[in-house]
Nucleic acid binder design. Structure first.
Lengths: 352, 352
DNA sequence: GTGAAAGCGCTAACAT
DNA sequence: ATGTTAGCGCTTTCAC
């Protein structure tokens, strides 16, 4: 089972075969009987090559199995057609979904994605990842980490490299793209209020998270605007388990008839706690999530939640980054609206 | 909202700022008053540099904000310290989890990860991704696509580039790393049989999937070995929705008291169908999943499932690839064992 | 339309 | 311990 494990310790291998495909432009040129510049022209699709020559070159290329060496090309042109993504937590649905969208958009635009995972969302880790990434050949960097440490003042990214931060602080001097956390929390809260609930309890995400903070703030503000009382939220860590623990505390409290959870997973945990305690959802208590994960529709009961458009988020992120790479000035904020998805976990306030 | 959208259409930008950090070894050398070769030595941590010189160079480096140009380094050394990953479906838990593990192990070994998503698991797409990847500077490639099209005969990967295929066919001429699908399906089936169920129904994954096929085969074989009857399985597509549809068909059949689902999500769908129909789990019917997704413990009831060790899978994949890069011959299969996780969705056969 | 020359930033090989 | 030379594969510039 761990037949290779030993080698993981070594930082790279010493004895190494050279690049497997050492067919150069020169080789192609020799075979085709032209100069390597002509091969370069064909390779780059330039027009000033006679059709007959082009075909000779193409034939030689495929015969030899030529593929351009991107390192040489990048060295020469100064551009890499490669975008770095720094991520913490490849297990969170939203991040992965956003990564997926960024990657698809990047591929469509002719860019590859270099992934740089960080073990923890600390300043040191991110700075380190950033440095490794700028040593890798990237034209720009996307930071997919939502945490307060990404305050512009906290983390020192070497200037000059185009950066877009997803899901972070509004006051950043970087370019920021984000889902409309405020809107989403407002939609959830007002949906519950409109159903007749006198107040809405909140199971919040971790305090270090920007988006969790924004959702909690907006929930509180919405409640205040409607003149209803605001109870201190319970804080989770996005996990099902933490939602379950929160649900266990909430279930015995009959005066609580509506809960807004900062993500779908914690909502799932709350649902489980309600089932165990015997409180019916939505007859006795309504639950709303946030994210619209694909599983939500399969929860029991199917979960009412706030849909984040991660695809759009990813697209916009890449677009903003390409702008930066194209020479645009950093800064500015792009906000993607959210949407209420009404399923069966919410209902009218119970008659006492 | 789509302030940048127009630009996504263009394949790359025309007007482009040059690499933002044009500090070369030569610049550092000038400032430090040494040759650039010495800078190179310091940069690569070689020992034959006097301490005083090293410090001068280091000081010059940080003053200038020098970072090595990996393109030049790669061009020179023929190695990129970069591994390509071809993936379909960044939304499937197992794939993402494996990617995460591969990425972490790669980072630890000094390699970056280049992600190459494919829109569909067709031969054409994978071959295309493979080609784009070998133009990008990668030392080796991991293919994270489980589908029959990845038969060695079906897809033609240019030879020479080290490749490891995860979760694919045993007969491949490539190096293959896989979870022990057979063992997992056997564990699930025997767990149910041991509980006294006379037979076990199967909700299978899509027919194109290797792992789905392996799980179904092993389930069937286990049943046959125990001399119990085997009903034709229902086929889903891994989604909650497809599990729900299968569950709707199964719920009215009282003779079915045990269901083994090929993944957790379809099990979730089955659970929902049982709730709707009013069949109690596990009192009236037992359900087992496959994967051990983090949400499973929050399902109602908490899901008994088969745990795949995706972290180990990812680690072994990277290790195998590094071996290949180091010059090892391709071929061979590494199998990671699975494990039964017993929670509350399974119980003894109901008394009629 | 095509070719020759130069050089991107780096490291390996060979000086000293 | 440090410097000098050469050249990785490619594109850009300038000839023809």
């Amino acid at each position: 089972m761990n037949k290779y494990n030993d080698d993981l310790a070594e930082p790279g291998f010493k004895t190494v075969t050279k690049r497997s495909n050492p067919v150069s432009q020169q080789d192609v040129a020799n075979l085709a009987g032209v100069s390597k510049q002509t091969v370069s022209r064909v390779s780059n699709g330039l027009t000033n090559v006679e059709e007959a020559t082009r075909e000779k070159v193409l034939a030689a290329m495929s015969q030899l199995g030529y593929r351009p060496n991107s390192a040489a090309r990048a060295l020469r042109s100064g551009r890499f057609h490669n975008i770095g993504v720094i991520m913490f937590n490849l297990s969170e649905y939203g991040n992965v979904k956003t990564l997926d969208a960024v990657a698809s958009a990047a591929t469509a635009a002719g860019y590859a994605i270099t992934l740089m995972p960080v073990a923890s969302a600390t300043e040191k880790e991110v700075t380190g990842a950033f440095n490794r990434l700028s040593e890798q050949a990237v034209d720009g960097i996307v930071i997919l980490i939502e945490a307060h440490m990404l305050d512009a003042s906290d983390v020192h990214l070497p200037p000059g490299v185009p950066v877009v931060i997803v899901d972070s602080n509004a006051d950043s001097t970087y370019t920021v793209v984000d889902a409309d956390q405020e809107l989403g929390a407002r939609q959830a809260t007002e949906h519950l209020l409109a159903l007749g609930h006198t107040s809405v309890f909140h199971v919040a995400g971790p305090k270090e998270s920007f988006s969790a903070g924004h959702r909690a703030d907006s929930w509180r503000r919405t409640l205040q605007e409607h003149g209803t009382e605001v109870a201190e939220p319970l804080y989770g860590d996005w996990s099902v388990e933490s939602g379950y623990r929160a649900g266990l505390q909430l279930a015995p409290l009959n005066e609580i008839t509506a809960v807004f959870c900062a993500n779908d997973q914690m909502a799932l945990g709350v649902l489980r706690a309600m089932h165990e305690f015997g409180r019916k959802v939505p007859e006795s208590i309504s639950v709303v999530g946030f994210d619209d994960t694909p599983d939500g529709a399969g929860y029991w009961p199917p979960l009412t939640t706030i849909r984040q458009d991660f695809s759009e988020l990813g697209k916009q992120t890449l677009a903003a980054l390409l702008h930066l790479i194209g020479g645009a000035k950093p800064g500015g904020r792009t906000i993607i609206p959210t949407q209420l998805v009404e399923r069966s976990s919410t209902g009218p306030v119970p008659r006492p």
